[in-house]
Amino acid sequence: MSEPLIFHFDVDGDNFTSAGQASVTIKKDLRRLGLSSEIIRRVSIAMYEGEINMVIHAGGGVADVRVFEEYIEIVLTDRGPGISNIDQAMQEGFSTAPDAIRSLGFGAGMGLPNMKRYTDDMKIETVVGEGTTITMRVNLT
C-alpha cells in the first residue's frame, strides 16, 4: 500500500476567532485531491467540531489528518481536563460551555454527536486531568 498523505495542524487555544482554520485548510486540501464533495463535507464538519471543542474545552491541541487509499483518519489530541463521563458527553444537548461561548452560537451539545454521525468510526480516549484523544475515520470505499 502506498504511503498516506499527512497533514498536521497546531490548534491555538487562545484565538477563538481563527478557530476552524485547520478544518478550512483541510477542506481545500481534500478538494485538491479530487475527493467527492460529500466526503469533504463530512470530514471537514467532523474535524471542525473537534477543533472547536479543543479550543473551547481544552485550551487547544493538535490535529493530524492522514489520507489513505481506503479511508481518511483524523486524530485530535489535547492536554485539557479530559472528559469524566463519555456517555453523557455524547448525548445530544449535553454541554458545559460557558455563556460567553454560547453567545457565539456554540454550546448546543451537538458537536460530539455530529462527529459520530458524519464519520464511519469514532474512538474517544480520555484521562481526567491529562487530556483527550479522539480518532475518527471516514471510509473512501
Binding site: R41, Y48, G105, F106
Partner: peptide, 13 residues
Amino acid sequence: GDLLSWVMGRAQS
C-alpha cells in the same frame, strides 16, 4: 437556526 452545531448536523448541502 442559530446554534452552529445544529446547523452543521441538520442543514443540507
